[in-house]
Every structure is written in structure tokens, then in C-alpha cells.
């Protein structure tokens, strides 16, 4: 008190200040709440529109049958199948590289200039527009490596798009594991690799999984990377799984949507909305899987 001396405000002034502070806080909370509801409303509007317009088109028949009558009838199975194929391969390529890259960055790279440069480069890559990856894939995989427009070129391109993001999310998840846990493992005489593989990674698994699945499903919904590397507008072919499949282009949901809309009028609106909803449900289903796995992992760990 003595410190403030006569400059200390009296009780009435202090009370006035308190009132203003509380009012200020209420106002900001009001703004935040409004914005929150706006975002929720927009999301609901988006999902609602797609649901209302797309649901009438969707049936088991629609999902599992081939397009017919110049795509004015029938289903979208080849496109759904193509998206699944693209995603599975992307996941298989992204998982090891993303994981190992993330482990290396988090545990071995240190904080030197080299590591910082690398980290910045990867962050830049992770923020690069997907069309750039598409063009790169076209130049390198399709043309230079002569893979042609093919499933394989699509896998590589989509993996290239996903890996930087997964490297970063994996690194983040590993860094979020408390150091005391790492200390505990080291003090038990575990090797560096055992510590990472048997203690750190299982502890970070929920975060690692989230990053991986969110990224790969995002990749599965992207049209630009496969635009020039893997995609064809539509297909009515039966699939015979084999090496040949890798070299063939694939029809898929996002590109089908883009092209179907662009060529306006050919595909009935109802089918386009149905495709839209299918793509959304496809991504949602995979995310749901991820959530289930994550919840289990978390429950097992107890956090």
C-alpha cells in the first residue's frame, strides 16, 4: 500500500474499474459465442445441403453399380473403387516415410542449423498448394519416369503431398510426450531405439494416428494432385486386380465431381449431389475408423 501511496485509487474508482472489466469480458465472450455459432451454422448448412440433395440419389445400388446410359443413370462404383485404391496406396506409402521422418526430426535431428533448415523446408512443403504436387508428379512420375497417367503415379504424387504433413504431425505428437517418460525408459537401460519404438511411439500413438488419417483422407479428397497424374473422368471397366492396374489411370470421386460439374448438363444434378455426399461419407467413414482406433489407444494408455 505504501508503495502506491496517494496514487492508490479509492474504493469507488476500483469498483468502477471492476464493473468496466466485467462488462468488457462479457462483450468479448459474446463475440466469441456468436462467431462460434456462425461457424457451426455454416458447417451445418453445408452438410445439410449435401445431405438433402444427395441422400435421394444414394442407395446400395448407386454405390455398387457401374454408370449406365452415358452416366445419366446407374451408379458410381468405379469412382468409389478408384478413390479407395488411391487412398490405400497413399496410406501404405505415407505411413513408413511419414513416421520415420517424424521420428528422425523429433529424436535425432537436434536443433542445429541443418535441422532447422530441414524443418522449415518440410513446413513449406506441407503448406504448398496441392496443384504444385500435381505438376511435379506429372513432370517426374508421369513423364520422366515414364509411369504414364496411372494409379502408381497417383500414389506417388499423393504420398508426396501427404508425407511432409505427416512428418510434422508425427514430430509434434512425439515432442508432446513428457520428457520424464523418456527419462524413465532411458534410466531402465533401454536403447535409444527401444525407447522411441516401445515407449515414445505408443505414448504418442493417438496423435500420430490423428495426423496420419486426417492427412490421408484429405489427400483422398484432393483433385489437383491426381488431375494430371492418375485421374480419368469416368470408367465403366470391371477391375481385374494385378500389375496392370497399377499402370492404368483411375476414375475417382473428387475428379469425377470436378469434371462432371464442369461439363455441366451431362450428368443429372441428382447424381452429382449423390457423388458429393458419397465423397463426404467416404472421408467421414475413414475418420470414424481413426477415431475408434484412437479412442482405444487412448483408453489403453489412460490419457
Amino acid at each position: 500500500m505504501a508503495v502506491l501511496g496517494s496514487s492508490r485509487p479509492n474504493q469507488a474508482e476500483l469498483h468502477g474499474r471492476d464493473v468496466r472489466r466485467l462488462r468488457h469480458g462479457k462483450f468479448l465472450i459474446g463475440v466469441a459465442t456468436t462467431v462460434h455459432y456462425l461457424v457451426v451454422a455454416m458447417t451445418l448448412a453445408l452438410i445439410g445441403t449435401i445431405l438433402v440433395k444427395g441422400l435421394p440419389a444414394i442407395s446400395w445400388e448407386f454405390l455398387t453399380s457401374y454408370p449406365a446410359e452415358g452416366m445419366t443413370q446407374g451408379g458410381i462404383w468405379p469412382m468409389l473403387r478408384g478413390s479407395i485404391l488411391l487412398m490405400v496406396g497413399t496410406l501404405a506409402l505415407t505411413l513408413p516415410f511419414g513416421l520415420l521422418g517424424g521420428i528422425w526430426l523429433a529424436e535425432y535431428a537436434g536443433d542445429g542449423r541443418m535441422a532447422r533448415t530441414l524443418r522449415a523446408s518440410i513446413a513449406t512443403l506441407a503448406g504448398t498448394p496441392s496443384i504444385i504436387f500435381g505438376l511435379f508428379g506429372l513432370a517426374i512420375f508421369v513423364l520422366k519416369l515414364k509411369l504414364g497417367t496411372s494409379l502408381l503415379a497417383g500414389w506417388f504424387t499423393l504420398a508426396l503431398f501427404s508425407i511432409p504433413i505427416v512428418v510434422l504431425t508425427t514430430e509434434q505428437a512425439l515432442r508432446a510426450v513428457p520428457e520424464s517418460i523418456e527419462d524413465g525408459a532411458i534410466a531402465l537401460g533401454l536403447s535409444r531405439w527401444q525407447t522411441i519404438w516401445k515407449v515414445m511411439l505408443p505414448s504418442a500413438l493417438p496423435g500420430v494416428m490423428t495426423g496420419l488419417v486426417l492427412t490421408v483422407t484429405r489427400a483422398a479428397g484432393e483433385a489437383p494432385p491426381i488431375l494430371m497424374t492418375a485421374a480419368i473422368y469416368y470408367s465403366t471397366e470391371k477391375l481385374s486386380l494385378g500389375w496392370e492396374t497399377l499402370k492404368k489411370p483411375v476414375a475417382n470421386l473428387p475428379y469425377h465431381l470436378a469434371e462432371g460439374y464442369r461439363q455441366g448438363g451431362v450428368i443429372p444434378e441428382k447424381i452429382i449431389w449423390g457423388t458429393c455426399l458419397t465423397l463426404m461419407l467416404f472421408v467421414l467413414t475413414i475418420n470414424l475408423f481413426a477415431i475408434v482406433i484412437r479412442t482405444r489407444a487412448r483408453k489403453k494408455a489412460g490419457w
Binding site: I181, G184, A185, V199, P202, K300, G302
Partner: peptide, 8 residues
């Protein structure tokens, strides 16, 4: 501080 691993 106790530092059990987040497992069983």
C-alpha cells in the same frame, strides 16, 4: 515425479 509409462 512418478513417471509411469502411459500403458498398463
Amino acid at each position: 515425479k512418478p513417471n509411469p509409462f502411459p500403458s498398463s
